[in-house]
Design a protein around this nucleic acid. Structure first.
Length: 306
RNA sequence: GCCGAGAUAGCUCAGUGGUAGAGCGCGGCCCUGAAAAGGCCGGCGUGGGGGGUCCGAUUCCCUCUCUCGGCA
Protein backbone atom coordinates (compact mmCIF):
# COMPACT_ATOMS: atom_id res chain seq x y z
CA UNK A 1 0.00 0.00 0.00
CA UNK A 2 1.06 3.56 -0.68
CA UNK A 3 2.25 5.20 2.52
CA UNK A 4 1.67 8.86 3.29
CA UNK A 5 4.76 11.02 3.55
CA UNK A 6 5.90 12.99 6.55
CA UNK A 7 8.94 15.18 6.09
CA UNK A 8 11.29 16.64 8.67
CA UNK A 9 13.71 19.49 8.14
CA UNK A 10 16.05 19.75 11.11
CA UNK A 11 19.30 21.52 11.83
CA UNK A 12 21.13 23.74 14.31
CA UNK A 13 19.94 27.19 15.20
CA UNK A 14 20.50 29.96 12.62
CA UNK A 15 21.41 27.56 9.83
CA UNK A 16 18.52 28.87 7.71
CA UNK A 17 15.79 26.29 8.13
CA UNK A 18 12.83 28.65 7.93
CA UNK A 19 13.58 30.18 4.56
CA UNK A 20 14.43 26.84 2.98
CA UNK A 21 11.32 25.25 4.45
CA UNK A 22 9.07 27.82 2.82
CA UNK A 23 10.56 27.11 -0.60
CA UNK A 24 10.29 23.39 -0.07
CA UNK A 25 6.71 23.56 1.18
CA UNK A 26 5.67 25.50 -1.92
CA UNK A 27 7.11 22.81 -4.15
CA UNK A 28 5.42 19.87 -2.49
CA UNK A 29 2.07 21.24 -1.35
CA UNK A 30 3.05 21.12 2.29
CA UNK A 31 2.20 23.05 5.39
CA UNK A 32 4.80 23.60 8.07
CA UNK A 33 4.56 22.28 11.62
CA UNK A 34 7.10 23.89 13.89
CA UNK A 35 9.33 21.45 15.75
CA UNK A 36 10.68 23.95 18.22
CA UNK A 37 10.20 24.07 21.97
CA UNK A 38 10.51 27.85 22.19
CA UNK A 39 8.74 29.12 19.11
CA UNK A 40 5.46 27.82 20.46
CA UNK A 41 5.42 30.82 22.76
CA UNK A 42 3.61 34.04 22.03
CA UNK A 43 5.21 37.52 22.30
CA UNK A 44 8.63 35.97 21.82
CA UNK A 45 8.96 36.36 18.08
CA UNK A 46 12.36 38.01 18.16
CA UNK A 47 14.14 36.04 20.90
CA UNK A 48 13.03 32.75 19.42
CA UNK A 49 13.57 33.85 15.79
CA UNK A 50 10.17 32.84 14.59
CA UNK A 51 9.62 32.83 10.82
CA UNK A 52 8.70 36.27 9.49
CA UNK A 53 5.15 37.30 8.71
CA UNK A 54 5.93 37.21 4.98
CA UNK A 55 7.14 33.65 5.27
CA UNK A 56 4.03 32.76 7.22
CA UNK A 57 1.84 34.31 4.56
CA UNK A 58 3.45 32.28 1.83
CA UNK A 59 2.99 28.97 3.63
CA UNK A 60 0.76 28.10 6.53
CA UNK A 61 2.75 27.46 9.73
CA UNK A 62 1.46 25.60 12.77
CA UNK A 63 2.41 25.70 16.45
CA UNK A 64 4.09 29.08 16.25
CA UNK A 65 3.31 31.56 19.01
CA UNK A 66 0.26 29.68 20.22
CA UNK A 67 1.06 29.40 23.94
CA UNK A 68 1.12 32.16 26.50
CA UNK A 69 4.67 32.79 27.69
CA UNK A 70 3.63 32.26 31.27
CA UNK A 71 2.22 28.79 30.63
CA UNK A 72 4.15 25.59 30.92
CA UNK A 73 4.52 23.51 27.82
CA UNK A 74 6.32 20.22 27.33
CA UNK A 75 7.10 17.29 25.06
CA UNK A 76 3.90 15.41 25.77
CA UNK A 77 1.71 18.35 24.92
CA UNK A 78 3.76 19.00 21.84
CA UNK A 79 3.30 15.47 20.61
CA UNK A 80 -0.42 15.61 21.10
CA UNK A 81 -0.80 19.02 19.42
CA UNK A 82 1.46 18.14 16.53
CA UNK A 83 -0.26 14.86 15.74
CA UNK A 84 -3.68 16.49 15.71
CA UNK A 85 -2.42 18.99 13.14
CA UNK A 86 -0.67 16.28 11.20
CA UNK A 87 -3.90 14.32 10.78
CA UNK A 88 -5.77 17.44 9.84
CA UNK A 89 -3.26 18.09 7.07
CA UNK A 90 -3.63 14.56 5.76
CA UNK A 91 -7.37 15.00 5.54
CA UNK A 92 -6.81 18.13 3.48
CA UNK A 93 -4.38 16.36 1.22
CA UNK A 94 -1.42 18.42 2.44
CA UNK A 95 2.02 17.08 3.27
CA UNK A 96 3.15 17.76 6.84
CA UNK A 97 6.60 19.34 6.89
CA UNK A 98 8.08 19.47 10.38
CA UNK A 99 10.71 22.17 10.71
CA UNK A 100 12.82 22.92 13.75
CA UNK A 101 15.77 22.19 15.93
CA UNK A 102 14.41 20.54 19.04
CA UNK A 103 15.77 17.01 18.92
CA UNK A 104 13.53 15.64 21.62
CA UNK A 105 10.38 16.95 19.97
CA UNK A 106 11.44 15.35 16.72
CA UNK A 107 12.15 12.05 18.38
CA UNK A 108 8.87 12.00 20.23
CA UNK A 109 6.98 12.39 16.97
CA UNK A 110 8.95 9.83 15.01
CA UNK A 111 9.63 7.27 17.71
CA UNK A 112 6.78 7.92 20.10
CA UNK A 113 6.65 8.59 23.80
CA UNK A 114 6.06 6.21 26.68
CA UNK A 115 2.52 6.39 28.02
CA UNK A 116 1.14 8.93 30.38
CA UNK A 117 2.97 9.48 33.60
CA UNK A 118 2.43 13.17 33.93
CA UNK A 119 4.38 15.58 36.07
CA UNK A 120 3.34 15.52 39.72
CA UNK A 121 4.15 18.77 41.45
CA UNK A 122 3.79 17.39 44.96
CA UNK A 123 6.11 14.46 44.40
CA UNK A 124 8.62 16.70 42.68
CA UNK A 125 8.58 19.22 45.48
CA UNK A 126 9.17 16.48 47.99
CA UNK A 127 12.01 14.98 46.01
CA UNK A 128 13.75 18.27 45.38
CA UNK A 129 13.49 19.01 49.05
CA UNK A 130 15.26 15.75 49.80
CA UNK A 131 17.82 16.63 47.17
CA UNK A 132 18.54 19.89 48.93
CA UNK A 133 18.81 18.30 52.36
CA UNK A 134 20.58 15.05 51.59
CA UNK A 135 22.40 15.64 48.34
CA UNK A 136 22.62 14.17 44.85
CA UNK A 137 23.87 10.76 45.85
CA UNK A 138 21.07 10.11 48.28
CA UNK A 139 18.43 10.39 45.57
CA UNK A 140 20.54 8.49 43.12
CA UNK A 141 20.96 5.60 45.53
CA UNK A 142 17.26 5.63 46.13
CA UNK A 143 16.78 5.23 42.40
CA UNK A 144 19.31 2.39 42.27
CA UNK A 145 17.11 0.40 44.58
CA UNK A 146 13.92 0.66 42.54
CA UNK A 147 15.31 1.05 39.04
CA UNK A 148 18.95 -0.01 38.76
CA UNK A 149 18.86 0.21 34.98
CA UNK A 150 17.99 3.90 34.95
CA UNK A 151 20.34 4.61 37.84
CA UNK A 152 23.17 3.23 35.79
CA UNK A 153 22.25 5.42 32.86
CA UNK A 154 21.65 8.65 34.75
CA UNK A 155 24.56 10.46 36.37
CA UNK A 156 23.98 11.35 40.06
CA UNK A 157 24.50 15.04 39.27
CA UNK A 158 21.76 14.98 36.68
CA UNK A 159 19.22 15.49 39.41
CA UNK A 160 16.48 16.55 37.05
CA UNK A 161 16.45 13.12 35.46
CA UNK A 162 16.93 11.33 38.75
CA UNK A 163 13.85 13.08 40.10
CA UNK A 164 11.84 12.33 37.01
CA UNK A 165 12.74 8.64 37.16
CA UNK A 166 11.74 8.45 40.82
CA UNK A 167 8.54 10.34 40.14
CA UNK A 168 7.56 7.89 37.43
CA UNK A 169 8.32 4.95 39.66
CA UNK A 170 6.26 6.36 42.50
CA UNK A 171 3.27 7.12 40.29
CA UNK A 172 3.29 4.17 37.95
CA UNK A 173 4.74 1.56 40.25
CA UNK A 174 7.04 0.52 37.46
CA UNK A 175 10.54 1.69 36.58
CA UNK A 176 10.81 4.31 33.87
CA UNK A 177 13.39 2.18 32.11
CA UNK A 178 10.75 -0.51 31.58
CA UNK A 179 8.03 1.91 30.49
CA UNK A 180 10.34 3.58 28.01
CA UNK A 181 10.46 0.43 25.97
CA UNK A 182 6.87 0.81 24.90
CA UNK A 183 7.10 3.48 22.29
CA UNK A 184 5.15 3.48 19.08
CA UNK A 185 6.68 5.36 16.23
CA UNK A 186 5.39 6.50 12.88
CA UNK A 187 7.65 4.42 10.69
CA UNK A 188 5.17 1.61 10.12
CA UNK A 189 2.28 3.73 9.08
CA UNK A 190 4.02 6.53 7.21
CA UNK A 191 6.95 7.15 4.97
CA UNK A 192 9.17 9.36 7.10
CA UNK A 193 11.87 11.39 5.40
CA UNK A 194 14.32 13.27 7.56
CA UNK A 195 16.72 15.96 6.39
CA UNK A 196 19.08 18.05 8.42
CA UNK A 197 20.99 21.12 7.38
CA UNK A 198 24.56 21.76 8.38
CA UNK A 199 27.55 23.87 7.40
CA UNK A 200 31.19 24.10 8.36
CA UNK A 201 31.43 24.90 12.04
CA UNK A 202 32.96 28.32 11.48
CA UNK A 203 30.33 29.22 8.89
CA UNK A 204 27.60 28.18 11.30
CA UNK A 205 29.09 30.29 14.07
CA UNK A 206 29.27 33.25 11.70
CA UNK A 207 25.58 32.81 10.96
CA UNK A 208 24.81 32.67 14.66
CA UNK A 209 26.70 35.88 15.32
CA UNK A 210 24.94 37.60 12.46
CA UNK A 211 21.58 36.43 13.70
CA UNK A 212 22.23 37.79 17.18
CA UNK A 213 23.10 41.21 15.77
CA UNK A 214 19.95 41.11 13.69
CA UNK A 215 17.87 40.24 16.73
CA UNK A 216 19.18 43.29 18.54
CA UNK A 217 18.45 45.48 15.51
CA UNK A 218 14.91 44.18 15.38
CA UNK A 219 14.14 45.23 18.93
CA UNK A 220 15.22 42.32 21.08
CA UNK A 221 15.82 44.50 24.12
CA UNK A 222 12.30 45.89 24.15
CA UNK A 223 10.73 42.52 23.55
CA UNK A 224 12.55 40.94 26.47
CA UNK A 225 11.95 43.94 28.72
CA UNK A 226 8.24 43.59 28.03
CA UNK A 227 8.36 39.85 28.61
CA UNK A 228 10.06 40.17 31.96
CA UNK A 229 7.23 42.30 33.29
CA UNK A 230 5.24 39.08 33.66
CA UNK A 231 6.17 35.86 35.30
CA UNK A 232 7.45 33.60 32.54
CA UNK A 233 6.98 29.85 32.60
CA UNK A 234 10.12 27.98 33.52
CA UNK A 235 10.39 26.83 29.92
CA UNK A 236 9.88 30.18 28.25
CA UNK A 237 12.32 31.76 30.67
CA UNK A 238 15.01 29.46 29.30
CA UNK A 239 14.96 30.89 25.79
CA UNK A 240 18.45 32.12 25.00
CA UNK A 241 18.38 35.89 25.32
CA UNK A 242 16.02 36.16 28.25
CA UNK A 243 18.30 35.38 31.17
CA UNK A 244 21.25 37.04 29.48
CA UNK A 245 19.37 40.31 29.10
CA UNK A 246 17.85 40.07 32.55
CA UNK A 247 21.35 40.21 33.99
CA UNK A 248 22.00 43.36 32.00
CA UNK A 249 18.71 44.95 33.09
CA UNK A 250 19.64 44.21 36.69
CA UNK A 251 22.94 45.99 36.24
CA UNK A 252 25.03 42.87 36.74
CA UNK A 253 27.01 43.48 33.54
CA UNK A 254 27.17 45.60 30.40
CA UNK A 255 25.11 45.28 27.25
CA UNK A 256 28.19 44.06 25.38
CA UNK A 257 28.61 41.30 27.92
CA UNK A 258 24.97 40.31 27.47
CA UNK A 259 25.52 40.11 23.72
CA UNK A 260 28.62 38.02 24.22
CA UNK A 261 26.72 35.61 26.44
CA UNK A 262 23.85 35.28 23.97
CA UNK A 263 26.26 34.50 21.18
CA UNK A 264 28.19 32.02 23.27
CA UNK A 265 25.14 30.22 24.58
CA UNK A 266 23.72 30.00 21.07
CA UNK A 267 26.95 28.41 19.85
CA UNK A 268 26.87 25.87 22.63
CA UNK A 269 23.25 25.15 21.92
CA UNK A 270 23.98 24.56 18.25
CA UNK A 271 26.75 22.18 19.21
CA UNK A 272 24.40 20.15 21.41
CA UNK A 273 21.79 20.06 18.66
CA UNK A 274 24.34 18.62 16.26
CA UNK A 275 25.33 15.94 18.77
CA UNK A 276 21.72 14.92 19.02
CA UNK A 277 21.15 14.76 15.27
CA UNK A 278 24.45 13.09 14.42
CA UNK A 279 23.54 9.85 16.10
CA UNK A 280 20.26 9.55 14.18
CA UNK A 281 21.07 7.44 11.16
CA UNK A 282 17.79 8.20 9.40
CA UNK A 283 18.89 11.73 8.74
CA UNK A 284 20.04 12.72 5.29
CA UNK A 285 22.47 15.57 5.67
CA UNK A 286 22.35 18.64 3.48
CA UNK A 287 25.53 20.66 3.64
CA UNK A 288 25.18 24.31 2.94
CA UNK A 289 28.01 26.08 1.22
CA UNK A 290 28.61 29.77 1.49
CA UNK A 291 26.57 31.39 -1.21
CA UNK A 292 23.76 28.95 -1.79
CA UNK A 293 20.32 30.48 -1.78
CA UNK A 294 17.35 28.98 0.05
CA UNK A 295 15.58 28.17 -3.19
CA UNK A 296 18.51 26.15 -4.52
CA UNK A 297 18.85 24.21 -1.31
CA UNK A 298 15.14 23.47 -1.25
CA UNK A 299 15.53 22.11 -4.75
CA UNK A 300 18.35 19.83 -3.67
CA UNK A 301 16.16 18.43 -0.92
CA UNK A 302 13.21 18.08 -3.24
CA UNK A 303 15.27 15.96 -5.62
CA UNK A 304 16.02 13.53 -2.83
CA UNK A 305 12.38 13.12 -1.96
CA UNK A 306 11.25 10.92 -4.79
C1' G B 1 69.68 54.34 18.55
C1' C B 2 69.81 53.51 24.07
C1' C B 3 67.47 51.46 28.62
C1' G B 4 63.90 48.16 30.68
C1' A B 5 60.08 44.20 30.42
C1' G B 6 58.44 40.12 27.82
C1' A B 7 57.98 35.93 24.00
C1' U B 8 54.61 29.02 27.25
C1' A B 9 47.48 26.13 24.81
C1' G B 10 43.00 29.57 20.26
C1' C B 11 43.14 34.06 24.05
C1' U B 12 44.84 36.10 28.98
C1' C B 13 48.50 34.42 31.90
C1' A B 14 50.90 30.87 36.18
C1' G B 15 54.93 27.78 37.28
C1' U B 16 59.27 24.40 37.48
C1' G B 17 66.83 22.22 36.39
C1' G B 18 63.77 16.01 35.55
C1' U B 19 59.57 17.56 28.38
C1' A B 20 54.05 21.96 31.78
C1' G B 21 49.26 23.97 34.19
C1' A B 22 44.61 27.77 35.40
C1' G B 23 40.54 30.71 33.67
C1' C B 24 38.01 31.75 29.38
C1' G B 25 37.45 29.71 24.54
C1' C B 26 36.92 25.15 21.98
C1' G B 27 35.89 19.81 20.95
C1' G B 28 33.27 15.09 22.03
C1' C B 29 29.09 12.70 24.37
C1' C B 30 24.26 11.62 27.15
C1' C B 31 19.21 12.71 26.68
C1' U B 32 11.43 10.21 26.93
C1' G B 33 6.50 15.32 30.59
C1' A B 34 11.59 22.25 31.71
C1' A B 35 14.99 19.89 26.15
C1' A B 36 17.21 27.02 23.50
C1' A B 37 16.83 23.09 29.64
C1' G B 38 19.86 19.67 32.42
C1' G B 39 24.17 16.42 32.93
C1' C B 40 29.15 13.92 31.79
C1' C B 41 34.08 13.76 29.58
C1' G B 42 38.46 15.97 27.19
C1' G B 43 44.52 20.08 27.58
C1' C B 44 43.69 20.74 22.33
C1' G B 45 51.36 22.52 23.34
C1' U B 46 57.85 21.01 18.30
C1' G B 47 57.60 26.22 25.77
C1' G B 48 60.00 32.55 19.45
C1' G B 49 65.01 30.81 16.22
C1' G B 50 70.16 29.29 17.02
C1' G B 51 74.22 28.07 20.22
C1' G B 52 76.32 26.90 25.20
C1' U B 53 76.51 24.84 30.53
C1' C B 54 74.54 20.26 32.55
C1' C B 55 73.51 13.22 33.03
C1' G B 56 69.20 16.25 31.75
C1' A B 57 66.93 22.85 29.90
C1' U B 58 60.67 25.31 29.01
C1' U B 59 63.50 26.77 33.39
C1' C B 60 70.54 28.97 33.84
C1' C B 61 74.10 31.76 30.19
C1' C B 62 75.10 34.00 25.17
C1' U B 63 73.10 35.58 20.60
C1' C B 64 69.44 36.73 16.88
C1' U B 65 64.32 38.01 15.74
C1' C B 66 59.82 40.08 17.28
C1' U B 67 56.36 42.73 20.75
C1' C B 68 55.36 46.30 24.54
C1' G B 69 56.85 50.45 27.70
C1' G B 70 60.42 54.63 28.70
C1' C B 71 64.36 57.93 26.90
C1' A B 72 66.24 60.17 22.65
Amino acid sequence: MFKKKIIFLLGPTAIGKSAIAVHLAKKINAQIISCDSMQVYRSMGIVTSQPSSTQRKRVKHHLLGVINASSEYNVARYRKDALVICNKLFRKGKVPLFVGGTGLYYSVIVDGIFPSVAEDKIIRARLSNQLRLKGNNYLHEKLSKVDPLSAKKIHPNDSRRVIRALEVYMKAGAPISALQKSRVGLDNEYEVKVFALNAKRQALYDKINQRVSKMFNSGLINEVRRLLKHKLSKTAFCAIGVRELEGYFNGEYSLDEAKRLIRRNSRRYAKRQLTWFRKDKRIKWINIKDKQRPGEIAKRIWKKLY
